[in-house]
Amino acid sequence: MQNTSHLLMIRPVKFSFNEQTAVNNAFQQNDTNNNVAEMAAREFDAFAQKLQANGVDVTIVEDTPEPYTPDSIFPNNWISFHEDGNIILYPMFAVNRRAERKPHVLKAIEKKFRIQNKIDLTALEANHQFLEGTGSMVLDRDHKIAYACLSPRTHMSALNNFAEKTGFTTVAFHANDRNGLPIYHTNVMMCVADQFVVVCMESITDENEKKLVRDAIHKTDKSIILISFHQMEHFAGNMLQVQNNRGEKLLIMSTQAYESLTADQIKILENYNRIIHSSLNTIETNGGGSARCMLAEVFLPVQQTQ
């Protein structure tokens, strides 16, 4: 199943610009506003409420002030949840992001869902091999394909380790921004939905790798919707398709991403699913991530009520 109606979100308590991640995240900008944490919390609440109002089940877990985790709002980088009951913990590039793996988050998940097994890849951090969850990989869950643009946060050896333990096939490539710098996470340039893929294909400069990605998508019979560098820079690649409690497909993105799309692109996307967007400007500016980064999809079996 490609999409779920269950999401995990971590409500921030001390969100701020993270200098450790800014070294290779060109989307981050240090906002001089003194109210960043408060503004980010308001954006988070409005976003979560909008998802819930549209019939999406959101498990909201409050972050803790200590240990200090400025990027806790992006849980999809350190954990993923799978239909077979597996959870996977991932090796993180920034040392201060590794502290996001807090036990109270898993306890909240276990109250609602059944965890069968834990696959822990975090030991790879000791070898400086990183794979930041569904930021580093965009998963086609139906076809068990992991698309991944290689970067300081996404290492081929860690990707192969993931594939070996899960049975996913990997489609690895290089993607650069308009300044020629590696794109830090695949999920800012690519979104895989049930019937379509949104991708900034011009960021893949090697023609053989571009063909590799295009051929892999075509084999799954999904349509390709191209976005430009400009649209990617406004987080138009950072979308996530979910479904609500009525089985309706929804495409989630930020308002900035939505406003970067053309009328034709919006029309095409709305043929597949309804679009939900929310303003995330503070989070996007300081965190360098957007709507998709804030959502960890939960595919685990639901606990049976007695």
Rank of each mutant, 00 (worst) to 15 (best):
F168P: 06
E164C: 10
Q2D: 02
E209P: 09
L8N: 10
K144P: 06
F299V: 04
E125K: 08
I183S: 00
E110M: 11
R42L: 14
C149W: 05
S279D: 09
N24I: 02
V138N: 00
M239N: 05
G133F: 15
H143E: 14
N117W: 09
S228W: 02
Y68P: 02
G133Q: 11
A41E: 12
R97L: 15
N25W: 00
G287E: 09
N208F: 07
V242A: 00
F162Y: 13
E164N: 12
S203E: 10
R246V: 07
L251K: 03
Q52T: 15
K211M: 10
A46N: 12
G135Q: 15
A216K: 04
N77F: 14
T285E: 02
M137N: 07
F15T: 03
T205I: 08
V58A: 08
G133V: 07
T21D: 10
L7W: 06
E164S: 06
K222F: 00
M9N: 12
P91C: 08
S290N: 08
A37L: 04
R292H: 09
M253D: 03
L159H: 05
F17T: 00
M39K: 14
E83N: 12
F168N: 09
I268A: 04
R141F: 01
C191E: 08
V105M: 07
T186S: 12
A175Y: 03
N286T: 13
R42G: 04
T305F: 08
Q195P: 03
E202R: 01
N271C: 14
E284A: 05
Q243D: 01
E125T: 06
A148C: 15
K222G: 00
H230V: 01
N208E: 12
H218T: 11
I119Y: 05
A26C: 09
M201V: 03
Q49L: 13
V302P: 13
F229D: 02
L261T: 09
T169L: 10
S80I: 03
A108V: 09
I283A: 05
F27P: 01
L295M: 15
A158N: 10
L131W: 04
T169E: 11
E202Y: 00
T262M: 07
L124E: 12
I183K: 07
F299I: 00
